[in-house]
Nucleic acid binder design. Structure first.
Length: 294
DNA sequence: TGAATTGGATGATTCGGGAC
DNA sequence: GTCCCGAATCATCCAATTCA
C-alpha cells in the first residue's frame, strides 16, 4: 500500500461506499457526482492494491480486505470527528435547527419533562417526532431522515451507537370505582379481568405480562389490543378493563386511575437512545443527547 | 506571476447483469 | 430480445493549489 497518496477524502469515500454499497448513492451522500466517486474508488483500489468493492447484482459488495478495513476505519474517523467537534462551540440558546427523533408514543410521553426543559434551553430548536420502526432505522439515519431514536438499546440495530437512559417497570392500572379492584390486585383478579394490551405493530395480543404469567402456569384474557400506548389509560379509565403499562405512562394519571403493584414479576425494560456514527460528533446532537441523558 | 498539476463537474458512452 | 440500472470510462472544462 502506498500511504503517501492517501488523503482523508479518500477515507471518507471508502466509508460512504462501505455504508451504502452503491456508488451512486455513496456519491450523493458525499455531494459528489458518480464519476467523481468512481475516480476516488479507482485511486483507493490503486493505493490498497485491492478491488475493495466489486460489482454485484445491485450496487457493489466489499472484498475481504475492505471488510477488514471497515472497523478500524470507522474508529479512526470517529476519533477524528471528535477532535474536530471539540473545537466547535454549540450555543443552544441561539441554535436554529430541526432534529428528527424516532420514538414510540410511550417514549415521547416518558421523555416529556426533558423535552420541555430542552426547548426552554434551546427555544429555536424544532423537534420532529416520527414513529419508530426499527428495521428501517439504520437506512433512515444514513439518509439523514432520522437523527436520534428513543428505544430499548437491546433492540437497536447493531450498527447504531446506544446509551441507556433509565430503567422502566410495569404497573397495573384500573379505574377508580372499579367493581372488583380497590387499592390492590391479586393473581386471581389479574387473570380473571379483561386486559388492554399494546402491540406497536398492531394485531398482537401477547406481551411481557403473558410471559410472566406463563412462568407460573397462568394466562390472562386480552380483550383489546391497540397500537398506541397513549390511548390505554383513557380506555381503562372508561371501562372495567385493566392493563399493565410502563409506569412513566401513567405517573400523572392517578386522579383518573388506580396505579397498582403487579402481583407477579413482570420484567421491565431499559429505555435509551440510539444514533448513527455519522452524527456522533455533531455538536448539536451531542448536546441534545447529553440533555436527554441528564 | 504564470504554468503545471490536481480534483471535480458534466455529458456521453460502454459494459454487464437482471427483469420482463 | 429489449429495457433498465448501475459501474466505469472518456473528453472537456473549470477552479484551486502548487511550484519554479
Amino acid at each position: 500500500m502506498d500511504g503517501t497518496r492517501l488523503d482523508l477524502n479518500l477515507l471518507l469515500a471508502l466509508e460512504a461506499l462501505l455504508a451504502e454499497r452503491n456508488v451512486t448513492r455513496a456519491a450523493a451522500r458525499l455531494n459528489l457526482s458518480q464519476p467523481a466517486l468512481s475516480a476516488q474508488l479507482r485511486r483507493l483500489r490503486d493505493i490498497f492494491g485491492d478491488p475493495l468493492l466489486v460489482p454485484a447484482r445491485r450496487g457493489v459488495i466489499p472484498t475481504q480486505r475492505a471488510l477488514e478495513l471497515q472497523a478500524p476505519l470507522r474508529e479512526s474517523l470517529r476519533a477524528l470527528r471528535s477532535v474536530v467537534a471539540e473545537r466547535v462551540h454549540f450555543d443552544p440558546s441561539a441554535a436554529e435547527l430541526t432534529v428528527a427523533v424516532a420514538a414510540s408514543d410511550y417514549a415521547q410521553c416518558a421523555m416529556l419533562d426533558r423535552i420541555v426543559e430542552i426547548q426552554r434551553k434551546a427555544p429555536k430548536l424544532r423537534l420532529s417526532w416520527r414513529q419508530l420502526y426499527a428495521p428501517e432505522l439504520v437506512g433512515q439515519m444514513e439518509r439523514g431522515e432520522v437523527d436520534l431514536a428513543i428505544m430499548t438499546p437491546n433492540t437497536a440495530p447493531k450498527q447504531l451507537l446506544t446509551l441507556p437512559l433509565f430503567d422502566e417497570r410495569y404497573v397495573v392500572i384500573a379505574r377508580h370505582g372499579h367493581p372488583v379492584i380497590e387499592g390492590s390486585i391479586d393473581v386471581e383478579q389479574l387473570c380473571a379481568l379483561t386486559h388492554v394490551a399494546v402491540s406497536p405493530r398492531g394485531g398482537g395480543f401477547a406481551g411481557p405480562t403473558d410471559v410472566a404469567l406463563a412462568a407460573i402456569g397462568r394466562q390472562r384474557r386480552v380483550g383489546l389490543s391497540t397500537a398506541s400506548f397513549l390511548i390505554v389509560p383513557e380506555l381503562v379509565a372508561r371501562s372495567d378493563h385493566i392493563a399493565l403499562v410502563p409506569e412513566r405512562l401513567v405517573l400523572r394519571k392517578s386522579r383518573d386511575l388506580q396505579i397498582l403493584e403487579p402481583p407477579i414479576t413482570v420484567t421491565g425494560f431499559t429505555l435509551g437512545m440510539a444514533w448513527h456514527e455519522r452524527s456522533d460528533a455533531e455538536p448539536a446532537l451531542a448536546w441534545l443527547r447529553n440533555e436527554l441523558d441528564s
